[in-house]
């Protein structure tokens, strides 16, 4: 029987959650026995090659490309998991949510005290995805099946969650794995 497939992506995140995934140490060998990776920065596959059992999403949605990728994940994955605080509630990028977009751009590219921008222009290359009016957590854009809190969630938490999902076991995380104080 073919191994189940897992896909991962980092949207408006810092790749910290992916680092935490790699932090499972030697269990990564076990993971490779257990699953194949589909679209993911881990194997650098850019496009889905087929249906996946689990999709892990890091980061919320700050631009149209994030939305596009997230919707693509929803279409291809049986189970979607928001991994980490940015995916779950917007996180640090969502700090801009109380400020109008135009003001954010002006502060970042024109008015900020450390800005050096002799052109006086706000970058506007057609390649740059359009920003959203604010940063959305993933579950406000598509249906999300599970949320793993943490910044980042520890490797053990990700490992336990992933193996439980792949083995069709209930996602029953012990208190120590979801406690952060």
């Amino acid at each position: 029987m073919a191994k189940p497939k897992v896909a991962t992506t980092s949207l408006a995140g810092c790749f910290g959650c992916h680092m935490s995934l790699l932090d499972i140490d030697d269990r990564i060998l076990k993971l490779v026995e257990l699953v194949d990776f589909d679209k993911s920065p881990i194997d650098d596959i850019k496009k889905f090659t087929g249906r996946c059992a689990v999709g892990l999403i890091e980061g919320g949605c700050c631009n149209e490309e994030n939305v596009h990728v997230l919707q693509d994940f929803r279409k291809h994955c049986d189970i979607l998991v928001s991994v980490g605080d940015c995916a779950t509630m917007g996180g640090i990028p969502a700090m801009r949510n109380t400020i109008p977009l135009a003001e954010c751009l002006e502060e970042a590219y024109l008015n900020g005290p450390t800005v050096h921008n002799p052109s006086g222009r706000i970058p506007n290359d057609p390649e740059i995805p359009l920003l959203l009016d604010k940063v959305y957590p993933c579950h406000e854009v598509v249906k999300i099946d599970y949320h793993l809190p943490g910044c980042p969630p520890p490797a053990d938490t990700i490992w336990q969650a992933l193996t439980a999902l792949l083995n069709n076991n209930p996602l029953d995380l012990p208190y120590e794995l979801i406690k952060y104080d």
Binding site: E64, V67, Q71, R74, K75, L80, P100, L101, A102, L105, I122, N124, P126, L130, L131, L132, D133, K134, Y136, E140, V141, V142, K143
Partner: peptide
């Protein structure tokens, strides 16, 4: 399809379209 009808992408990118003119 799991794509939430409550999320309105066109409303969400409206400001950016005006700002960038794209």
């Amino acid at each position: 399809d799991g794509l939430l009808p409550t999320f309105d992408i066109h409303a969400a990118i409206g400001q950016a379209k005006r700002i960038t003119g794209r």
